[in-house]
Nucleic acid binder design. Structure first.
Length: 289
DNA sequence: ACTATTTCCTGGATGC
DNA sequence: TGCATCCAGGAAATAG
């Protein structure tokens, strides 16, 4: 399940491979859920644009696009673009959220089109960028104004005072607060559990009852876990692979996630699993208070 | 203004 | 073996 480290890995991989390439044409599937913007607007926005940069924001992958001289002229010439007036601005963005099972990968055009493929971007280089998502929790949209933003603060950029302020007065369990993208963006179920274990805090602890010292440990834990996971290419749970189809290795470093009943790596007590806000939450009942 | 719960989706695992 | 049921979870929608 792609969270911040997986999305960062994918964004870096895509940036390395397709930055500077341009989008020649776009095919979109019939399933409506994965497409947040109308299909005609997506196609009109993407076709003929050059990929200037690719980056991660929270769990979103953002493609910064700009007009591509030759390709744009070709589009205007053959009148293929159905919505030319609405894409008058030279800058635009493609925004992709992978949800649970989404994948965004570069393909050889000869490669068989997999089941659950919802979008194919044919690139001028001849390669294809495909969006595949069996469960359709992922979303693809475009922004004309090139100013896409999302809620929450990047966990790798926040300082302690602002981190503490996010949780002030909140009665919700700290686990739920860590998953709330309006507060921090990018932390998901795996990294919330791993961070709380390292900080010695139980997932059900009410956010407002956590002390400043504990918040300091928690922020350090969140940042270390995310950085270590990025360094290992993310966690390959279920079917996650990066932009090159390669698996990550951070799942081998998980200390509590997915280890229900197994001995705690620190004290050998069996790891507990409870459900908080409908999500599996794993913790050591002895090490976490 | 918050918080908790439900809903969307498919494939893989489990149960009888 | 076959078929039904359950479970995974990000985030939006809904309810309280």
């Amino acid at each position: 399940m792609p969270e911040l480290p997986e999305v960062e890995t994918i964004a870096r991989g895509l940036a390395k491979r397709v930055t500077g390439d341009a989008i020649d044409s776009v095919w979109l599937g019939q399933k409506k859920e994965p497409l947040k913007s109308p299909a005609a607007e997506i196609a009109a926005t993407l076709e003929g644009r050059r990929i200037a940069s690719i980056r991660r924001m929270g769990k979103h992958i953002v493609f910064d696009l700009e007009a591509n001289g030759a390709a744009a002229a070709k589009r205007r010439g053959n009148g293929k673009s159905p919505n030319a007036a609405s894409v008058a601005s030279t800058r635009a963005q493609l925004i992709v959220h992978l949800g649970m099972t989404g994948r965004l990968q570069v393909y050889d055009p000869q490669a068989e089109v997999e089941k659950h493929t919802h979008a194919i971007l044919k690139l001028v280089s001849g390669r294809e960028l495909r969006f595949v998502d069996p469960r359709r929790f992922g979303r693809l949209s475009v922004a004309q104004t090139a100013n896409f933003d999302t809620t929450g603060i990047e966990p790798l950029e926040i300082d302690l005072d602002r981190f503490i302020a996010l949780f002030r007065g909140r009665k919700t369990p700290i686990k739920s607060a860590l998953l709330n993208q309006k507060l921090l963006r990018g932390v998901g179920n795996i990294y919330a559990d791993e961070s709380l274990f390292r900080a010695g805090i139980r997932p059900r602890r009410r956010a407002a009852t956590i002390t400043r010292d504990q918040f300091a440990k928690l922020l350090t834990a969140v940042q270390e876990v995310l950085k270590e996971a990025i360094a290992l290419g993310g966690s390959s749970i279920s079917d996650y692979v990066d932009a090159d189809g390669e698996e990550g290795f951070f799942q081998l470093q998980h200390r509590v996630y997915g280890r229900e009943g197994e001995p705690c790596v620190a004290c050998k007590t069996a790891v507990n699993r409870v459900v908080i806000a409908g999500r599996s939450s794993h913790y050591c009942p002895k090490c976490q208070k």
